[in-house]
Design a protein around this nucleic acid. Sequence first.
DNA 1: ATAATTGCAAATTTTTTGCAGGTTC
DNA 2: GAACCTGCAAAAAATTTGCAATTAT
Lengths: 135, 135
Amino acid sequence: MTDYAQLLKEHELKATFQRTQILEVIEKYGHIAIERIYEEVSKIHASLSLATIYKNIIMMVEKGVLTEVPIIGQKSKYEIAKEEHIHLICTSCSAVMDKVLDKDTSEDTQHVAEVSGFSLEHRQLNLYGLCESCK
Amino acid sequence: MTDYAQLLKEHELKATFQRTQILEVIEKYGHIAIERIYEEVSKIHASLSLATIYKNIIMMVEKGVLTEVPIIGQKSKYEIAKEEHIHLICTSCSAVMDKVLDKDTSEDTQHVAEVSGFSLEHRQLNLYGLCESCK
DNA sequence: ATAATTGCAAATTTTTTGCAGGTTC
DNA sequence: GAACCTGCAAAAAATTTGCAATTAT
């Protein structure tokens, strides 16, 4: 159980109840879309405004607390920012799973970028298919 | 210059003027967002409706003529469906460049998916950074 | 001739904004 | 107490829908 108040302060954000609850919900589900965060946090804090969710997601992405995960055919999901990893996305049940990116692949992509005269900042690898339980 | 009327028919879609123009514009720009397609095609066909763009993009993605390219912090762009490749995305000027995915990386990702009991359908690798002219 | 497609207008859905009151540090 | 954050209501932006007229095969 991470100390989200602490995490927020480290990123120059005030630790409000809404923010810590948003983070708890994102951690609980791993990857989650805006509307769904709203539904979940509302269960705990009924007067929550959707505008607050939007403002906070934008702010927390800017400050590096969250990462956006854009997905083909869906609205973006958000996750707590963490070490580099890839996503396995089930095209049937929409589940998103994290996997570590192996060193070779990582070096390969770095190489591709360099050869193209590109200074690499961030990698995003999504693998789409059927998860174990859906196939 | 591809024969888009032909391409559409091969995918069970009628070859309307609007559709072929949308495809020409997408090919011209490589990767382009909905609003921008609308602006560009409108120059040629002023009575074009934005609803027509939406309906057609959805239909052409479903039929496999187009591919959606979801991007962090932007609206999705669309490209003509083609052999597998990756995207180099400039975080400064938003340019998107295609690169072939090398065989090793491709095998690596296949392996990661298998190990996780995942049956892989589609890969999507985006590399974000500064392009040659922006850095 | 038939079935599909277009453009329009209206409806929905999603996201952003401004501001008064409340909260955090 | 100063700066920041929230919730609300309204505005703006993005996407979808229904339908009559038109077009492709």
